[in-house]
Every structure is written in structure tokens, then in C-alpha cells.
Design a protein around this nucleic acid. Structure first.
Lengths: 196, 196
DNA sequence: GATTGTACGATACTTGCGGTATCGTAAGGA
DNA sequence: TCCTTACGATACCGCAAGTATCGTACAATC
């Protein structure tokens, strides 16, 4: 199974990802050319195209490979509190320069089916899994009802965040998160005092 | 006062809008070139650029000029029913080929500040006004509380729709509308039986 | 340690599109 | 009739995505 020929440079691979992340985060997807990324990485353009099929694929990988726990669910006293803290993290992430990355990829995905698929499967779905688990915990803890569709609920929770990211006038503050969460809980929360 | 020189051709203007709507609706924004639009309209490319600054502006105008009452609020017995019917209309509109138009413009707006402004002011805001009026009616009718922020509520209502339009696996059915509306009402609805 | 096969960086090239410039012609108000 | 501007057509420019090619640098195999 010994590989023949010169092996691919992991150094070049990593340098390209890092360069793409830096440039696109700073200037946006359209403003950065493939030449720019290759030059910033100190790499030939052909090396980039040997590792990825196109620019969007590079940026997608850069988002996934070099983003840490910015959108993870922290430990908390209750599932609802964990959800609350994650929502704040997500909003902070969107509001940061990294938000450009997500916006760029969503935009590009509108005309690139492969990218759209990758974005759903590799970015959205893992995060939705996290939300799903947390909601199930909240249900088990008795703080949410158990008669609603999880995926629809997730769309309602995060849809408004993405809406403001992509279309909003820019106001993605903590108050918005609290209002959204409160609205969510008042709709899906268990009502212990009410019978039937 | 009297215009001098040859007047602009309203025929060419309308033909360009119609061609842009047709082509972009069918094939998507990126797949259609300015040459395509001009050719389809039977017009020189320069005429197009004399009437609009760029491709995105043409498509934006096409969306506004040639779309009718597809997303209007119908008369109904109550404000909430009118809202419900409009949500169904909106979903049907998004699901139709016209959805491509909106998706294209949102995508383009991510890197075109002028278009983003135009999209917000000319497409989103008028529709939000309609929602706002309807929600105020519903409050006046006593079927919604009056202690919530209208704009946040609208984001929560329509955010999930745009989320599915832009990122969803395509499932934008009637059940989704009903679930979203129900969630909205359970959060913002007046609770006549409950005191304090 | 020579051979072999592939990746490497560099660079020239192709293609296609957005947008501009130019040209002779058409249209209408003055 | 004259004057000014828009018209359709077409050539052109600039730029970026993606391809092709070249001599070189590796590392496994012989």
C-alpha cells in the first residue's frame, strides 16, 4: 500500500486553509481571488486546485477546520441554560468577523449545489444535532413539552438568527436572543400549573 | 422642462424587465448573463446599462415591477386569519419558481451593499409593514398581547421561512406554516383565562 | 544510490462575464 | 429642419476562475 511518488504537502494544505480563513474573514468571499489565497499561503495556485475543486470548497473546509468551540454547547445547570448560553455564543460568532464567512458560504451555496449540500451536512447538521440533544434533555428534565417536532422547533429558534445575519439591519444583540428564547419557551415550555 | 433629444424607450425598459424575470426565474441569477437578458429582450446591452447600473438592479426591479399580489394580505374574518393566509401565500410564493428570484437577490446582496439596502427597503420593509399592521389589528382585536416588540416578533415569524428558503432541504409545506403560526400565537397570544 | 512517479511552485494560457466605449442610425422636441 | 439624446450593434477592457505546462523537489522502490 506504500504510496508512490511525492506525497501531498500537509504544510501547504494547512497554509491554504489558514490563508483562506484570514483573507475571506477580513475582506469577504468575492473580494478575495484564488490567486490571493495561494499567494498569501506561499503556494502555487495549482496546488490549491490539486487539494480542492474550487474556491468555495476551500473556504468551507477552512470554516470547519479552523473554527473551534465557538458554537458549542457549554455545561450548565440545566439544558435550557445550556441552550441559552449557546444561543448567545452563536450570536456573538455571527456578529464577529467570522459571520462574514457564514454569510459568504450561504450566498455561494445558492448557486452551487455541491456547496449547499456540504454546508447543510457539515456545518448546519452537526449543530442541529447539538440543539436536538439539548432539547431532548430539556424535555427529559421536564422543562419542555414533548409533543412538538424538533426540526421545526429548531428552524424557529435559529431561523431568526440566520435571518438577521443575512438580511437584518445588523442588530443582533443580547436582547434579541433573550426575546427569541423567551418566545420559544412560552410556546414549547411545559406548563406545570395547567391541567389538560 | 421640455425634454430634449430622443426619449427613453419604455418598450425597451419593459422588455428588459420581462426578460430578466423570465430568465432568472428559470435558470438563476448567476447562470444568466447580461448579454442573455439583452438578447432575450431584443435590445442592445448598452440600453440595459443606460436604464440600470448593473445586473442586480435590473433583477431587483423585475421582482418588484412584475410581481403582483402574491404576497399580499387577504381580507379575512380576523387579523389572525389574514396573517395565516398570508403566510400560506408567502410559502407558496417561495416554493414556486419565483423563490429563485428572492434567493438570488439575497445571495447577491451579501456582497453588494447597494442591493442589500434596496432589498431591505423595497422588498422586505413594505411586507414587514403589512405584517406590522396586521399584528396591530390582532392586538386591537384582543387576540394578541400588546407587550412584545413587533419587529422581533416579525423576525421570529418570517425568519424560519427565509431560513428554509435559503438553507432548507426544501420542505416548506403547509404543516410547517401551521406549526410556525401556532408557535407564534402560543407565545404572543392573549391568555384570556389566566389572570396576571 | 539510482530510478520512478507524483506533488510542488511558478507562470502562461484559455474562457467567460461584467461593464465601457464607440459608431452610425432613429426619434422626437424646438 | 436642426439638435440632442437614446437606440441596437459590436468591439473592447479588466479581471478572475480554472487549465496546461515546465523544471524541480521529494520519498518510496529497485
Amino acid at each position: 500500500m506504500g504510496t508512490i511518488g511525492r506525497p501531498r504537502s500537509q504544510v501547504a494544505h494547512a497554509a491554504i486553509l489558514k490563508a483562506a480563513l484570514r483573507l475571506v474573514t477580513k475582506s469577504g468571499f468575492r473580494a478575495v481571488s484564488v490567486n490571493d489565497i495561494a499567494a498569501e499561503a506561499g503556494v502555487g495556485k495549482m496546488t490549491l486546485y490539486r487539494h480542492w475543486p474550487n474556491k468555495a470548497a476551500v473556504v468551507m473546509d477552512a470554516l470547519l477546520a479552523l473554527i473551534g468551540e465557538e458554537t458549542a454547547f457549554p455545561e450548565a445547570a440545566s439544558a435550557l441554560e445550556s441552550l441559552q448560553q449557546q444561543l448567545h455564543r452563536q450570536v456573538r460568532f455571527f456578529r464577529s468577523a467570522r459571520g462574514n464567512l457564514v454569510r459568504s458560504l450561504v450566498a455561494e451555496a445558492q448557486t452551487d449545489r455541491a456547496l449547499a449540500k456540504a454546508f447543510r451536512e457539515r456545518w448546519l447538521e452537526p449543530r442541529r444535532q447539538g440543539v436536538r440533544r439539548t432539547l431532548e434533555c430539556a424535555i427529559a428534565e421536564g422543562s419542555l413539552r414533548n409533543d412538538f417536532d424538533l426540526d421545526t422547533a429548531i428552524d424557529q429558534l435559529y431561523g431568526s438568527l440566520y435571518y438577521r445575519l443575512l438580511l437584518g439591519s445588523g442588530v443582533m444583540d443580547e436582547r434579541f436572543v433573550e426575546a427569541t428564547l423567551q418566545q420559544f419557551v412560552s410556546g414549547h415550555g411545559a406548563k406545570p400549573k395547567t391541567r389538560k
